[in-house]
Design a protein around this nucleic acid. Structure first.
Lengths: 103, 103
DNA sequence: TTTCAGGTACGAATCTCGTCGTACCTGCAG
DNA sequence: CTGCAGGTACGACGAGATTCGTACCTGAAA
């Protein structure tokens, strides 16, 4: 209810709901696996959905406090909020990277 | 698709979807916070929903591999599958108990 | 045996979510 | 300026989730 803060990390329900979707989980797992934490474009994830749907997924991830979106007007940059996640939800990123390696 | 295994821990998507609901998260958080790991009854959680809905929630938790249900015909016992969870999803229970203590 | 609380099965109402179509905006390359 | 790729806004549709009503089963107490 009311406008989401989207500025800081949301509650566990919002985070789990965001990570329940396989596409969004793939995005965060890829970001978490890349230690350089560089800025990536939305297209670099090769999601098998339309661009409207991608916009939706990245918005959900941003409102859950998991990523940072940098708007360049024309294109958009994605960055993992690793520090905030590890501070408020320690161990979460490890769960995602572990799943990605099998089992 | 097909009948769910419900015997061993499910994938991350199923687990996150199960824990996205606040009622179910409350159940697991209470179980995780109680170190004795004793058997509890469904009623002991005081969920503000009807008993049909409780049946539904406990089934979701069981199919996600998070709890064990012991059927006595008349009543039902609930037990946290702590060992399996900590083995396949280390750190998950800590996230739930941390949220319950406030941020 | 009768009664009753605890649970389940099935179905319906409602809501949310994931997806896309159409239309529009933004910045860069010709 | 024109064209074009990347993104967004709004609306719609189908699938799934949450909740409950009604009906029924099970075991223990009276």
């Amino acid at each position: 209810m009311s406008a989401p803060p989207e500025d800081d990390a949301a509650d566990l329900g919002t985070v789990f709901r965001a990570l329940a979707d396989e596409h969004r989980r793939t995005v965060i797992a890829e970001l978490a696996a890349d230690g350089s934490d560089g800025e990536r474009t939305c297209n670099s994830f090769d999601l098998p959905v339309s661009k409207q749907t991608q916009t939706h997924h990245f918005r959900v991830l941003r409102e859950a406090g998991l990523i940072h979106e940098i708007n360049y007007g024309n294109r958009k940059g994605i960055r993992l909020r690793r520090a905030e996640i590890n501070r408020r939800l320690p161990g979460l990123l490890d769960l995602l990277t572990a799943e990605r390696r099998g089992t």
